[in-house]
């Protein structure tokens, strides 16, 4: 039985008379990395601000480790470590002074624990330098150190890879997996970058326009869509080829996208079988490409259905 670390029910919020968050509910369990996906403007940051008590909710309940955030704020928030947007620490103090500052606010954190966390994020050499001399990557690590200092059950990261280089992103990814798998933390990550969520997360919630569109295992969500195969044939046989493919029992769908191209929804393991059928019927197959559906495709499809043209904003960053 996995423990529910974060439970959100019926969260709503209005800002300036407009409903920003309409109805958000989901649970996050211990030991999993949970992705919170949505285009910019979907309400991700507002939701996170409510999760950590920076903003108040109009309706709905947030429980952390079974404790109501609204009713028992100190006890509930004591189990949370977070970085909302950029890790903004006191630049005029050293890394160590920053950690000591937050340690005093949490209470009961020993000097050894600070040493331990500094080693954990590998900042031993720079910890006594002023934060303004730190690189972005170092600030990010100090941000993680302050978030983990008090041994939280839930780690909340808002767009954690913003501004990191590819090596930094890879490092962060491994780090987060390790926290969830070895330390049993629940990690909640928001992002509009799908590729990274896909690699990091066990489950995702996809939101658009202030509502949850879909929650589930990354694997399950992707299976719903199945694999796609793109066939290239000589242009004059496009029609015939798609007719043959459609007739096969294991092909769900075959659409001639343009001259000589056919998109098929089918099991990739049966490509050879389909190919043989086509060749035997005199179709010249020029190329076969198996395409695995990415979370990105899924995301686009889901948010287009529900959210109109909004997905367009996610485009440029979603590499």
């Amino acid at each position: 039985m996995t423990e529910t670390v974060l439970s959100i029910k019926g969260l709503r919020k209005q800002m300036g008379g407009k409903p920003i968050i309409k109805d958000i509910s989901f649970d996050v369990y211990a030991g999993e990395v949970f992705g919170f996906l949505g285009p910019n403007g979907a309400g991700k940051t507002t939701t996170i601000r409510m999760l950590v008590g920076l903003a108040s909710a109009d309706a709905g309940e947030i429980h952390i480790g079974g404790i109501s955030l609204h009713k028992h704020f100190p006890q509930a928030i004591a189990q949370v470590g977070c970085i909302v947007e950029n890790p903004e620490l006191y630049k005029f103090m050293t890394g160590r002074e920053n950690l000591e500052h937050f340690a005093r606010m949490s209470g009961g954190i020993s000097r050894e624990r600070i040493e331990e966390i500094v080693r954990f994020v590998d900042l031993q050499r720079a910890i006594d330098d002023k934060v303004k001399t730190y690189s972005l990557g170092m600030r990010q690590r100090l941000g993680i150190a302050q978030a983990l200092l008090h041994n939280p059950k839930l780690l909340i990261l808002d767009e954690p890879t913003n501004g990191l280089d590819p090596a930094g992103i890879r490092e962060l990814r491994q780090f987060i997996r390790r926290l969830a798998e070895e330390e049993g933390l629940a990690v909640f990550i928001s992002s509009h970058l799908l590729s990274e969520i896909e690699m990091m997360c066990d489950r995702v919630a996809i939101i658009g326009k202030g509502k949850v569109i879909s929650v589930g295992l990354v694997k399950d969500l992707m299976e719903q869509f199945g694999d796609q195969v793109e066939w290239s044939v000589s242009p004059e046989t496009t029609e015939a080829a798609s007719r043959i493919l459609r007739a096969l029992p294991f092909v769900e769908e075959a659409v001639a996208s343009k001259e000589g191209r056919i998109m098929c929804k089918m099991d990739t393991e049966r490509i050879a079988e389909a190919n043989r059928t086509l060749v035997l019927q005199g179709i010249a197959v020029l190329g076969i490409a198996a395409k695995t559906v990415t979370l990105e495709d899924l995301f686009l499809a889901l948010t287009t259905e529900e959210g109109g043209a909004e997905h367009g904003h996610a485009g440029p960053g979603a590499k």
């Binding site: 920076l54 006890q75 620490l89 606010m105």
Partner: peptide, 8 residues
């Protein structure tokens, strides 16, 4: 954001 997300 860091100051107000502490158990205080």
């Amino acid at each position: 954001k860091l100051l107000l997300t502490r158990p205080v």
